[in-house]
């Protein structure tokens, strides 16, 4: 089930020691955002994959679990494919082959950006991502991010427990009453532990929590920035026609 696969992804992302994990999360997410924004300006379909190339190489070097990549990539890919397939007949009737070209452009651009995002998400330790988000967020939102991140794994384990408890002889037994009651219990207990977590956050830094992740930048960050910037420049130069 998806909950188990996300657990194994979390485990891998926290324990792996790959070239991608040595990159600063601010540099990684910042470069992904720049890639996504540059993709909007590229209009030639054949040039777009140049933007995804650095991320594909990073994924090959890091070798994340295939299941983790599939869990994250398949649902949005399916939604994108369904959306564009639904759009295509209408676009063809309205604009002819130019309409289909637009659909193809959205498709390639969507998959390019999804590749960049999924590779970044899978190869960045999850706690680093959330601690960085908290460090950059305004007061209140930063604490909400940290409480969310801290509560998430316990809540997901509790959910799995509920679904296992509702399974009888290997088949899920539909009992909304039991599911609702179990969900209410998970919520109430999670809030209690979140209150203790919030107290710990206050002790660490109050309204502006100091991130536990080091924000030092190394040679690998410079190299990655140059690689991504180069791919963006190439894409913009060749792709704005």
């Amino acid at each position: 089930m998806r909950l188990e696969r996300i657990d194994s992804l979390v485990e891998w992302s926290l324990e792996a020691d790959t070239p991608a994990h040595s990159l600063n999360p601010v540099v990684k997410w910042g470069s992904t955002l720049v890639t996504v924004l540059v993709a909007f300006a590229v209009r030639r379909i054949e040039v777009l994959p140049a933007l995804a190339l650095p991320y594909v190489v990073l994924a090959v070097l890091s070798r994340p679990p295939r299941e983790a990549l599939l869990v994250m990539a398949v649902p949005p890919s399916v939604f994108l494919a369904v959306t564009l397939a639904a759009m295509s007949p209408w676009e063809y009737l309205k604009h002819g082959t130019e309409g289909l070209r637009h659909v193809a452009l959205y498709s390639v651009r969507g998959f390019t950006d999804l590749t960049a995002l999924v590779v970044t998400a899978v190869t960045t330790p999850i706690n680093a991502t959330w601690e960085t988000a908290a460090a950059l967020a305004p007061p209140g939102l930063a604490q909400a991010f940290l409480v969310f991140h801290g509560s998430l794994y316990g809540v997901m384990r509790a959910f799995r427990g509920i679904l296992v408890a509702l399974t009888v002889r290997g088949r899920p037994k539909p009992s909304l009453e039991a599911f609702g009651a179990a969900l209410a219990t998970v919520l109430a207990r999670s809030v209690s532990s979140a209150e203790r977590m919030e107290a710990a956050i206050e002790v660490r830094g109050g309204a502006r929590p100091r991130p536990r992740v080091s924000l030092r930048f190394g040679v690998s960050d410079v190299v990655w920035t140059i690689v991504v910037a180069s791919s963006c420049v190439v894409a913009l130069t060749l792709g704005r026609g």
Binding site: A144, F145, F148, L152, V155, S190, E195
Partner: peptide, 14 residues
């Protein structure tokens, strides 16, 4: 804040 963060976590898990 704990309730906000926890509800977000429960929603995400669901």
């Amino acid at each position: 804040i704990p309730l906000v963060g926890t509800l977000a976590a429960v929603s995400f898990a669901a």
